[in-house]
Amino acid sequence: MEEILRRQIEKIVKLTDDEFSFVLSHFTARSYKKHQYLVQANNPAPNDNFVVKGLLKSFYIDDAGKTHILQFAMEDWWISDPQAYHNKVNATLNIDCLEDTDIFFISIDNREKLCAEMQKMEYFFMKKTTAGYIALQKRILSLMSQKSEERYAQFVQLYPDLLSRVPKALIASYLGISRETLSRMSTF
């Protein structure tokens, strides 16, 4: 499991064995079962989670009880409630497992300590955070400006592996369309 985390980090910064041991000492490994929550709304969300194995979803339930999928996270992806994590407040989002999942997590306190002591990791997290903001902007613009067919085609292009792993109802929620609309589009 450690090697997967190391490969993730070394896509951006190279580490010696000693440096990686130091980095790893700031993370904790944990396993979750399918349907188990990592984060629940109105509770603390003190960790940023790197997915080693498995699949998770981040979602919000509005006042009318409707579920809105914000993000999926599979192997080699990060997931958290950024507002809760960085501001040390209770979560707005829920994060649960769609499959049995293994993660490495890092608390905000450990992340801040690690970044203060190791410039390489400060750079790594800055690059990952920036990439996340860019992806979020693209997703919001897609929801605002693209037709449902275009959003579905983009999803298929960007995340082909998720099509066989995520129930269609969840993909529809992520795309902001009905399950019926998704079924019509996915038959083409």
Rank of each mutant, 00 (worst) to 15 (best):
A73N: 03
R111L: 12
F72R: 03
A153F: 02
M74T: 11
W77K: 02
K120P: 00
Y174H: 10
E117D: 14
F188C: 06
F104L: 11
K34L: 07
Y123L: 12
D62F: 07
Y32A: 01
K168L: 14
R151W: 04
W77M: 10
E99P: 02
E112P: 00
T92V: 12
I140W: 09
Q83E: 06
S164N: 14
Y32E: 03
M74E: 14
N49W: 06
K113W: 00
G54E: 02
L98M: 14
S58Q: 10
F20A: 05
Q146D: 13
Q8F: 11
F50N: 00
K128S: 10
Y37F: 15
L93Q: 03
Y133K: 07
R151M: 06
D18K: 15
P160M: 05
L70E: 04
Y60H: 14
I95L: 07
L24E: 05
E19A: 13
M144A: 13
G176S: 09
Q36A: 15
E150D: 11
A91H: 01
P46T: 10
Q83S: 10
V89Y: 02
E10R: 10
S21H: 10
C115G: 01
R111M: 14
E180W: 06
Q40C: 11
N42P: 08
P167D: 08
A91E: 00
E122D: 13
H35K: 13
W78S: 00
A153R: 03
R151K: 10
N110L: 02
Q71L: 09
D48S: 13
P44V: 08
E3I: 11
H68A: 08
I108N: 01
L158R: 11
Q157I: 06
N90S: 11
Y174C: 01
L141S: 12
A153I: 03
N90P: 06
H68W: 14
E122L: 10
P82G: 06
I171T: 06
I9V: 15
L56C: 10
L55Q: 03
K127H: 12
R30H: 11
Q157T: 10
S178I: 11
E10I: 15
V89T: 13
N47V: 04
N87I: 04
E19Y: 12
R184P: 05
T67S: 13
P160V: 07
I103F: 01
L24V: 12
K33W: 03
A153P: 00
S107Y: 07
S21C: 09
K138T: 08
P82S: 08
E180Q: 15
L114M: 10
N94K: 03
K147G: 15
L15A: 04
T101V: 06
Y32W: 12
T187F: 07
D100C: 06
M144C: 11
K168E: 14
I95Y: 01
A45E: 02
M1S: 15
P160W: 01
D62V: 07
Y152S: 02
L93P: 00
T101D: 05
L70C: 09
D102R: 09
F20H: 05
K128Y: 09
S186R: 09
L5T: 05
V51M: 04
I69W: 01
V13T: 05
L56S: 04
V39Q: 00
N90A: 10
D161C: 05
L15K: 06
S148G: 14
